[in-house]
């Protein structure tokens, strides 16, 4: 149980989300995919937390479970402004949805092809009665302008836009509800490098103007380093390391974090690559290894790692790591 601390907009404690594996004649659950298996972090208002990891490590599921978008959680707590998200009634949840929004990875499939852009952005605003009818049009124009879209774009359909502009539409749609917290799920991964920078700058300036809080999910480490104040590194459903961006990038502690960072290709031919190449692939989350989940690929693996799961400990101020190496 965590107690509410008003400086944090979001407090996540031991969050778990398992998906059943159905099989056999009667579609009985024959196993569980432990997509998120005990994630704990707190997020300060107006800051950005980056969540990194390889595909299948549960970063997207974490984002969606926080927003209560993937059914019931399996365990743990999600406190948003001090209230447990999963205890809210349908009506209360609906009201809260305006406060927490999400931007998806693929701007090509996350916009309805049948609605004009003005309607895509305005639909939820009207649904939630956020502005009066008279102000509606002006309001949509202002939001679009903030996101670098022109008023005449309102009547157009998503297929008339390029990837970068579509992502602007997605951002405008989220922003129109005047949210406090936005989960950005790989918002720039589908975009070209030259467009990526435009969207990152847009997200940063919107954050400054509106004091937004972001959970920024990405597998692109250099983007995460650029935009985040704190960074969490996930591996097989666990947060293995968590701390301020400078600490994580300058002084990575967990062997997985070290390997992950050493694998980033640096756009500089003279940069020395001391790659720590990890052997093998990420194990299945349906059947995770015993003890520390990373022990099958870890160079510093000991007998203890195979048997006993490490717990999160604070190594320096605000820098947490889940690894037996740092037991004192």
């Amino acid at each position: 149980m965590v107690t509410y601390d008003p400086q944090y907009i979001l407090m996540v404690d031991e969050l778990k989300k398992y998906f059943p594996i159905k099989g056999g004649m009667m579609s009985k659950a024959v196993g569980q995919v432990k997509a998120v298996d005990g994630v704990t972090f707190n997020l300060k208002r107006g800051t950005t937390m980056g969540l990194v990891g390889e595909s299948g490590c549960g970063k997207t599921t974490t984002g969606r479970t926080i927003l209560r978008l993937s059914g019931e959680k399996t365990g743990g707590q999600v406190l948003f402004n001090g209230k447990e998200v999963y205890d809210l009634s349908k009506k209360e949840m609906r009201a809260l949805r305006t406060k927490m929004q999400i931007i998806f990875q693929d701007p090509f499939s996350s916009l309805s092809p049948r609605l004009p852009v003005g309607e895509i952005i305005g639909e939820a605003v009207r649904e939630h009665d956020l502005v009066s009818k008279a102000e509606f049009n002006d309001y949509i124009d202002t939001v679009m302008d903030e996101c670098g879209l022109q008023p005449f774009h309102k009547a157009r359909y998503p297929h008339e836009f390029s990837g970068g502009q579509r992502q602007r539409i997605c951002i405008a749609r989220a922003l129109a509800l005047n949210p406090e917290f936005i989960v950005c799920d790989e918002p720039v991964s589908a975009l070209d490098v030259s467009i990526q920078a435009q969207i990152i700058n847009l997200l940063k300036s919107l954050q400054r103007q509106r004091n937004l809080t972001y959970l920024f999910i990405s597998h692109d480490l250099s983007v995460v380093e650029h935009i985040s104040d704190v960074v969490g590194v996930m591996y097989l459903g666990n947060l293995v390391e968590y701390g301020r961006t400078e600490d994580i990038f300058r002084n990575p502690l967990h062997p997985y974090t070290k390997a992950l960072f050493s694998a980033i290709p640096i756009p500089d031919p003279k940069a020395k690559m001391n790659r720590i190449v990890l052997e093998g692939t990420i194990p299945s989350p349906a059947n995770p290894p015993s003890g520390c989940k990373f022990h099958t690929r870890c160079a510093n693996c000991t007998q203890r790692c195979k048997e006993e799961a490490p717990v999160q400990r604070e190594v320096e101020d605000g820098h947490y790591v889940v690894c037996h190496l740092y037991d004192k």
Partner: peptide
């Protein structure tokens, strides 16, 4: 993924 990318490169 980056770690696999490093292996392949």
């Amino acid at each position: 993924d980056v770690t696999i990318q490093a292996q392949i490169l």
